[in-house]
Design a protein around this nucleic acid. Structure first.
Ligand SMILES: [Mn+2]
Ligand SMILES: [Mn+2]
Ligand SMILES: [Zn+2]
Ligand SMILES: [Zn+2]
Lengths: 144, 144
DNA sequence: AGTATCAGTGAGACCTAGTATCATAACAAG
DNA sequence: CTTGTTATGATACTAGGTCTCACTGATACT
């Protein structure tokens, strides 16, 4: 079963209809190995209406097919999610995104809940830095 | 020395000019005990131009007079910062914001840097939950 | 297969949260 | 008080996204 088929099944399980527009958006999304913006998808799936692309991105986010990546400049990108809840380490120089193996604040959430009497329901966490390639002066000089 | 005067001194130290517009924005900012949006300040400081309010908010952020709070719906708010780098716990029900005592991911940042060979330069972290007041059914029923 | 139902679509208006431009004003150093 | 530079604000513009609503078509049911 292709990745496309498996995303389609996921949506069917959640009682969403499978339409040509949705299939086109999903195919565009799956064509990316790194992160991408909604505008990228709009450009790739020209026949699909702007509103429908946004609606489908929300659907895919809710279905955990993609995860959202907040870039340091505040812009929101997406990437295909091949695991559950996790966080990102974004290289501010080349844009490369590293998925962190697991949620690194799980313990903290429990401690905080105890200390503050809040019931903690969610969190946003992103790390920004420079990858080893981008830190190497040679690589920096050679960058396009 | 009033809080207003002390913010003015801070800007002077950083070689920024003190103008009536800036004073008006600072006064509006300091009138808030919780978090507020830029639109709130624009409404309060009617005589000040829209662009100037945004410019001044950036100035105040850079000067650590305010800190930015990312709400769960993605909207950006501000609040007066009375300490250095820290994070927030936002009640998604009443909007109350709790400042966390210190940066809770300092150790994590060092571990991650070692594990990934990234040089980590920054991070975004916000927690969302429900405060004890909002979790109490009585309080919920009584809320306006 | 035919049909009914309601979820989904897309053109385009609209909106929010800002940024860019640039002629004009005014702060603060000397 | 002059001067050089910084700041201002009207206004136009933009990015990113939502709303509306008549229409379409996917799916379930017969
Ligand atoms: Mn991810
Ligand atoms: Mn704070
Ligand atoms: Zn890099
Ligand atoms: Zn609360």
């Amino acid at each position: 079963m292709s990745e496309l088929e498996s995303v389609i099944r996921r949506l069917e399980e959640l009682d969403h209809r499978i339409t040509p527009s949705r299939v086109a958006v999903i195919a565009a999304v799956l064509s990316h190995s790194g992160h991408f913006s909604v505008e990228d998808i709009i450009r790739q799936a020209r026949a699909v209406g702007r509103a429908t692309v946004f609606r489908t991105m929300r659907l895919l986010t809710d279905a955990d097919v993609v995860c959202r990546v907040l870039l340091e400049d505040g812009s929101l990108h997406y990437r295909v999610s091949r695991r559950g809840h996790h966080h990102h380490l974004v290289c501010v120089s080349c844009g490369n995104v590293q998925d962190l193996d697991e949620c690194v604040v799980g313990d903290l959430v429990r401690e905080l809940a105890a200390a503050t009497e809040y019931e903690i329901e969610g969190h946003w966490l992103e790390f920004y830095g420079r990858c080893s390639t981008c830190r190497s002066p040679v690589a920096v000089a050679a960058r396009p």
